[in-house]
Amino acid sequence: MKKILVADDEMSIRLLYSEELKEEGYEVYLAANGKEALEIVGKVPLDLVILDIKMPEMDGIEALRQIKEKQPDLPVLLSTAYGEYRQDFATWASDEYLVKSSDLEDLKSAVKRYLKE
C-alpha cells in the first residue's frame, strides 16, 4: 500500500484529504505543519507528499526545500489556496502546483500520475 503524507494546518482539509485518499486505497499520514511533516518524512518510507504552503512553525515552501534536499526523488505536490506562489522560484522544485478546489479530481489524478498507477 502506497504511503502518502498530507500536511495542512486546517484540520478540516486534513480530514477531507485523508478520507478521500484512504478511499482510493492509500495509507495516509497527517501533519499540521512543516516541522511535523519533516519528522514523518524522516521516519516513514513515503511514496508521495502533499504540502499546504501557509502553515505555522514551518511553511510548505521550507518543508519542500528540505524534503527535496534529503529525498530528491520523493514526489511533492503543493496544494494551496494561493495561486500566486506558482510564480515563486521556491515552488518550482515541487512536482505539481495545485490550487485547492472542492473538486479533488485534479489532486487525485496528479497523485495517480506520480505514483505511476
Binding site: I13, L16, E84, S102
Partner: peptide
C-alpha cells in the same frame, strides 16, 4: 480581495469536499 478570497477558499474546499463525500 485576495485576503478575503483565500480565507474563503479553505472553508469552501472543506464544505464542497465533504458535500461530495
Amino acid at each position: 480581495a485576495s485576503g478575503m478570497a483565500h480565507e474563503i477558499r479553505n472553508p469552501l474546499v472543506s464544505i464542497g469536499g465533504f458535500a461530495r463525500r
